[in-house]
Amino acid sequence: MARKRVLITGAAGFLGSHLCDRFIKEDFHVIGMDNLITGDLANIEHLFKLENFEFYHHDVSKFVHVPGQLDYILHFASPASPIDYLKIPIQTLKVGSLGIHNLLGLARVKRARIIIASTSEVYGDPNVNPQPEEYWGNVNPVGPRGVYDEAKRFQEAMTMAYHTFHGVETRIVRIFNTYGPRMRLNDGRVLPAFIGQALRGEDLTVFGDGSQTRSFCYVDDLVEGIYRLLMSDYVYPVNIGNPDEITIGQFAEEIIKLTGTKQKVIYKPLPQDDPKQRRPDITKAKELLNWEPKVNRAEGLKITYDYFKSLSKEALEKIEHKDFSNYNKK
């Protein structure tokens, strides 16, 4: 029997590359697609020798053509960190609007099931904690984060419209903070930023007073949740994340302890619209998908730190230190 075929956009990114690995493991024919604006071919170079993997260097904001049958589409193409979407705001909005339109059209033509990567950022700076899927959010559409938050909110609306109007089989995953090997040290997200600073011997930078919270999910757990949601019959958004909440200040101390470094924590102003709390309500994932995270933070952090330590000294030195100097500008 012929292998089922899956298209994964954002395939050279952190999450996209792990999804490629998972679908190869499940014996799919995987078609990776990425314009490499934030992705890195090094994340998927181990797959190029496989006969059931192929790669298209393409921007999904432009018309997408894939020859042959397609059974599934995973739309994971998008800048996903503040540094990226502040630097390329128009591209961020385009991949969340033109890109999703192109891929939903492709799913309709191919009669493929499509899952889109939404985000906990649709909840904005939430007034409810933990955040359930029924919460509509507290988002500033014209703030610096609006290009990402509203792109994802539009993606969800477009996806549901294609489902209700055209009968396309759609799934929506709302992804909370995720970490693991292949993250970029300079992408502005808190975990790689802290580890990068520790490895370079710099003090750890906390924005705000450190009381804001995040909940970190190891990438293998996230991929399992995404896979189960794709194979389920549920069409509405589902949170996938780890509800184990921690303050950023406490997390900085965990990183210092993990890395065995002597750095201190320094504080800078909190960026505009930065969420004060982030914790998923995963009741739906448990009930619908029989899913919950298995990897605890200590275990996942050790794997991730070992990965970053394995990078060459030259690679670390090339990573310029980033800050949010433009992030507070109105």
Rank of each mutant, 00 (worst) to 15 (best):
L104P: 00
S81P: 04
L316S: 12
K264G: 12
T92E: 06
K284Y: 15
N328M: 12
V235Y: 11
L204P: 01
G300Q: 03
M231H: 14
D125T: 09
P275A: 02
V238Q: 02
Y179S: 08
R297N: 11
F165Q: 15
G13H: 04
N138W: 01
Y162V: 06
L222D: 07
L106K: 07
N127P: 01
Q197T: 02
R182Q: 11
L258V: 09
Y307H: 09
D273K: 05
D71Q: 09
T213D: 06
R22V: 08
P126D: 07
G105T: 10
Y179A: 04
P243S: 15
E121A: 11
F14Y: 10
A112S: 13
S118Y: 05
R111C: 12
Q212T: 13
Q250T: 07
L7A: 09
F216L: 14
M158K: 09
Q263W: 00
T304Y: 00
E150S: 14
P126K: 08
I37P: 07
Y179R: 07
V95N: 05
E202C: 04
F194K: 03
T92K: 02
K313F: 13
N43L: 08
S325E: 11
D84Y: 04
D187E: 10
S312W: 10
L7E: 04
L311K: 14
I319K: 03
P144G: 08
M183N: 04
M1G: 12
V206E: 08
I83W: 04
S97E: 11
A107V: 09
L106G: 01
D220Y: 10
G124F: 02
K313V: 15
F23Q: 01
E121P: 02
E320M: 07
K94H: 08
L36F: 13
E245M: 15
A107R: 00
I282H: 01
T283M: 11
T9H: 02
F14T: 06
N177C: 14
D221P: 05
R228E: 07
G39D: 06
C217H: 06
L7P: 03
L301M: 03
F63E: 15
A298I: 13
G32K: 05
I303Q: 06
R111P: 05
I248S: 00
A117G: 11
E26Y: 10
L74Y: 03
Y179W: 13
S118W: 03
K152M: 07
P82S: 03
I248R: 01
L104D: 03
I44C: 06
V223R: 07
L47V: 12
T178I: 12
E202Q: 11
L191Q: 08
W136L: 15
P141C: 13
T119A: 07
D244M: 13
F63Y: 13
A117V: 07
I114G: 06
R111V: 09
L204Q: 02
L70V: 10
E134Y: 14
V95D: 05
A161C: 14
T9L: 04
A11K: 00
R182I: 05
G260R: 08
A77L: 09
I303A: 08
R297D: 06
E169I: 10
G180A: 10
L230Q: 03
D221C: 08
P82L: 03
V168L: 09
A285V: 10
H46T: 12
V238D: 01
N138P: 00
Q250V: 03
T213W: 04
L301T: 01
P243F: 12
